[in-house]
Amino acid sequence: MALSSAEIQRIAHLARIEITPAEAVDVRAKLDSIFDLIGRMRAVDTAGIVPMSHAQDVTLPLREDIVTETDRRELYQSVSPAVQNGLYLVPKVIE
């Protein structure tokens, strides 16, 4: 299978990764060969097979509804690119 340039740009937008037209050529060639490899599994008959999402057959553990976390804002925001008054700053979100 071959992905079109438009498809590459569509998924790059979904993934929020800028891909320049120059990069797109290489990305497209490599993705094509990877999807050739991936395509091999499509020949297997999997009718009625239950998909396997986890490596183990376990169920979700539950916990008590108690507050265990304390305020660690200062520590967590010590690695932040932009903060003010305890808020993370991002380019204006228009709605």
Partner: peptide
């Protein structure tokens, strides 16, 4: 609930910003 769905941070309303945001929540 008193705590969040996947972390032990408080759900109380009105706290200063990001003081009830645990490592999981951020």
């Amino acid at each position: 609930t008193r705590s969040k769905i996947f972390s032990g941070a408080s759900t109380a309303f009105g706290a200063p910003p990001n003081t009830q945001a645990s490592a999981v929540d951020i």
